[in-house]
Design a protein around this nucleic acid. Structure first.
Length: 748
DNA sequence: GACAGAGGGTTTTTT
DNA sequence: ACCCTCTGTC
């Protein structure tokens, strides 16, 4: 089956039937094709019922794509009954049915990151901890890393006083989750893993599936791996697909050692390597390889391609971030001139803070663009408020939601009253809803406060009563009118309040969509069902459909491909990223940055432009930059280096003939400044530095350069530091380390 | 209870 | 540069 559409290793992975299978899928090697064909073959040839196949992904988008492809191969019925979903959605579904075994009640709510943070803030306040000494952000990160490794507060060890406190916070956080009948994202997976390992119910979960597939296996964390290993324990029909070279989520718990773990747990596993790249030109594949080859401890494999050599990769030096943005604009105009669709062009950057200047330039040039990432729909305040009402109606015990809405819109229940109410409940171990019901018993509250709180309780009671007969969307409408939420917004009458009302309308229409879909699937639409979908949903589905250039971080680009990729900010300390402090770069971190660069390069099908600036404003300060080490590591062949002022030279004559040069563009400079002189190897155009001393610049000095200083004599550059002016740290024999402005140094 | 101003921190992101 | 949080004032 499919023999003529697959190469040899692809066919082997598709044909493999029972037992463990490990597929290394290089960038652009047809990974999704292998997974979906494999599913289709299991259904068609092995007669496996589709609902006995579980395919797990990391994003909803990947899940949707997989289901869509299966539909084309195996038909709508098979696609519908197949278990395809993210780890979280799959586990949530299983827990609604099997959760009792591990003490999870079926109507639990899922707390997203802002709910988690709000919950943690309560805990910190309760324990009276200074949030400067215990920043919620990092405490939460700490808790998550325990849970990602599968540890609860009792399994986590404390090595210091601070650890001790952190554990107390952890324990209290867990207690409050439980008391709120809420699960955080990690809980979804952890609880399924626990059910599978230690309960009779686990056997029932296992018996649901005959085949299990995991996509992006290099991104799994310890708990996720535990879960898939346990769920396939009986038959071991576990197929994992991934690429260790594309592991870029270590910082959020992904553990590349799971690949080794898989081999240890399944020594008899079949291993398949997909190494033929169908996506990119030879030059692009070669560039990617020369970056990743320097990575240590990777699975040996060699990406190759039969595609054309293609055009050379361009590496361009821009003066600053605005010059860079102009170059991006010029490149887009040029690509479009060659017939590339806007949606097939992407601009990548390492951090979101880089996007603003690029956006400005695109807007000025009237190029339609779409930015991926940023504030999501379901994270907007008004949406969260509305959802909090729905969740409190569905699950009265959810204190985070209760606290969010108790005075929204303002109804005269001030912070002090809320505090007293919460203290009363917390001292008795009761949820807030209980405190509302027994408001008369709370002596700490004044008569006015009691009256207002009682009125709020009455409001909720009325809504809860209404919920019994209304559909989810009707309930939302009722909530918004009974609380006068929209009314209050309407009175504001600003552009912002209008937008908020518009967002609420959109929420309503997405509820309607849900109702229609649920009915089509033969299930009654429930509030709980909708809330789960919302919490586990992302809204990046419409990507690239709108004929616009896409701007995104390199992380956001993973899994995507474009004809033309413009990779900006290729500078030391930005890419590879290094935090502000002059901490020496940790090598694990550098490895991850390297893989990230590999991911970025392999997104491009035909055209790749990599840009670095000589200086840029970042976080409010001007920083002088060295070109990224990744630029140094590119092959000589197939790479053309140039500057924005000499761009005509590298693109060939007539490059800028067909568009209007921008005033701020470096390209204008090409006509005014004398022809630049190309420099062998590392490219520095001194003409950029009219207003800089014509001494050595940062670009000449890098780690290891030998330099001379009038007073200290000869020394060796240890590192380059971001500062208002080119600055380096030099070790002078006899003097030690000195931080010196580069203009006081000469290259020795 | 609303708002202004100070202060601190600053990667990457899904669910 | 910007955003979020905290604090103090009216």
């Amino acid at each position: 089956m499919f023999a003529d559409e697959l190469n040899e290793p692809q066919a082997a992975a598709v044909a493999h039937t029972s037992g463990p299978l490990l597929v290394f899928a290089g960038a652009g090697s047809g990974k999704t094709r292998v997974i979906t064909y494999r599913i289709a073959r299991l259904i068609a040839e092995e007669h496996v019922p589709p609902w006995r196949i579980l395919a797990v992904t990391f994003t909803n988008k990947a899940a949707a794509e997989m289901r869509g492809r299966v539909q084309r191969l195996s038909g709508a019925e098979a696609a519908r009954s197949l278990w395809v979903g993210t780890f979280h959605a799959t586990c949530a579904k299983l827990l609604r049915v099997h959760g009792a075994a591990v003490g999870v009640r079926p109507n639990f709510v899922i707390y997203d990151s802002s709910d988690q943070k709000a919950l943690l803030a309560r805990v910190l306040k309760d324990l009276d901890l200074d949030d400067r000494r215990f920043p919620p952000r990092s405490v939460l990160a700490h808790i998550h890393s325990h849970k990602q490794e599968g540890r609860g507060p009792d399994e986590a060890a404390a090595h210091s006083y601070v650890d001790e406190i952190a554990l107390r916070v952890f324990r209290s956080y867990e207690e409050r989750l439980r008391a709120s009948n809420a699960l955080d994202f990690e809980d979804l997976i952890l609880n399924v893993a626990r059910a599978l390992e230690g309960t009779p119910e686990g056997e029932l979960i296992r018996q649901r599936f005959d085949f299990v597939l995991v996509d992006e296996f290099q991104d799994t964390n310890a708990t996720q791996y535990r879960m898939v290993r346990e769920i396939s324990r009986n038959h071991r029909n576990l197929c994992v697909v991934g690429d260790d070279d594309q592991s870029v989520y270590r910082w959020r718990g992904a553990d590349i050692r799971n690949i080794r773990g898989f081999r240890r747990d399944h020594p008899d596993a079949t291993v398949v390597k997909l190494e033929q790249n169908y996506r990119s030109t030879q030059h692009i594949v070669a560039a990617a390889l020369s970056i990743i080859a320097r990575s240590s401890s990777r699975e040996p494999k060699e990406l190759w391609t039969q595609n054309d050599a293609g055009d050379p990769i361009l590496v361009v030096t821009a003066r600053d971030e605005r010059d860079e943005a102009s170059l991006v604009v010029e490149s887009i105009v040029r690509a479009r001139g060659r017939g590339t669709k806007l949606a097939d062009i992407a601009v990548f950057y390492r951090i979101n803070a880089q996007s603003r200047v690029l956006e400005d330039a695109l807007r000025r040039a009237s190029i339609d663009y779409e930015i991926v990432g940023g504030l999501r729909f379901y994270e907007r305040a008004e949406i969260k408020d509305a959802l909090a009402y729905l969740r409190v109606i569905d699950n009265p015990q959810s204190d985070v939601d209760m606290l969010r809405i108790i005075n929204v819109p303002t109804r005269g229940i001030g912070a002090t009253s809320v505090e007293r109410l919460a203290a009363w409940a917390s001292s008795r171990g009761l949820p807030l809803t209980e405190a509302l019901a027994r408001i008369g018993e709370i002596d700490q509250l004044g008569a006015t406060a009691k009256k207002k709180i009682a009125a709020f309780a009455g409001l909720l009671g009325g809504l809860r009563e209404a919920a019994k007969t209304l559909t989810p969307n009707e309930l939302l409408v009722r909530v918004l009118s009974d609380t006068a939420y929209v009314e209050v917004l309407g009175e504001e009458d600003t552009a912002e309040s209008d937008a908020r009302i518009e967002n609420l309308r959109e929420l309503s229409s997405s509820l309607l969509d849900y109702e229609v879909e649920a009915q089509a699937a033969g299930e009654p639409p429930t509030l709980c069902g909708f809330l789960e979908r919302v919490t586990l949903a992302s809204d990046t589905d419409s990507l690239g459909e709108q004929g616009k250039v896409v701007l995104m971080t390199v992380h956001g680009a993973k899994g995507l491909e474009f004809d033309t990729v413009l990779l900006t900010g290729m500078e030391e300390d930005l890419f590879p990223y290094q935090t502000q402090q002059n901490k020496p770069q940790d090598s694990e971190q550098l490895e991850e940055e390297r893989r990230l660069a590999y991911v970025a390069i392999t997104r491009a099908r035909r055209t790749l432009v990599m840009i670095h600036t000589q200086y840029r404003q970042i976080f409010g300060k001007t920083r002088w930059n060295c070109p990224s080490r990744f630029l140094d590591e590119l092959p000589n062949y197939g790479v053309v280096r140039s500057t924005t002022t000499s761009i005509e030279r590298s693109f060939g004559p007539g490059f800028d003939r067909d568009f209007e040069p921008d005033e701020t563009s470096g390209l204008t400079g090409a006509k005014q400044v004398p022809p630049p002189r190309p420099v062998e190897g590392r490219f520095v155009d001194r003409d950029f530095f009219h207003d800089q001393p014509d001494e050595s610049t940062l670009a000449d000095m890098r780690r290891g350069s030998r330099v001379h200083h009038d007073r200290f004599g000869e020394g060796r550059v240890l590192r380059v530091v971001g500062a208002a002016e080119p600055t380096v740290v030099v070790e002078f024999p006899g003097w030690g380390e000195k931080k010196i402005l580069a203009r006081f140094l000469k290259l020795a």
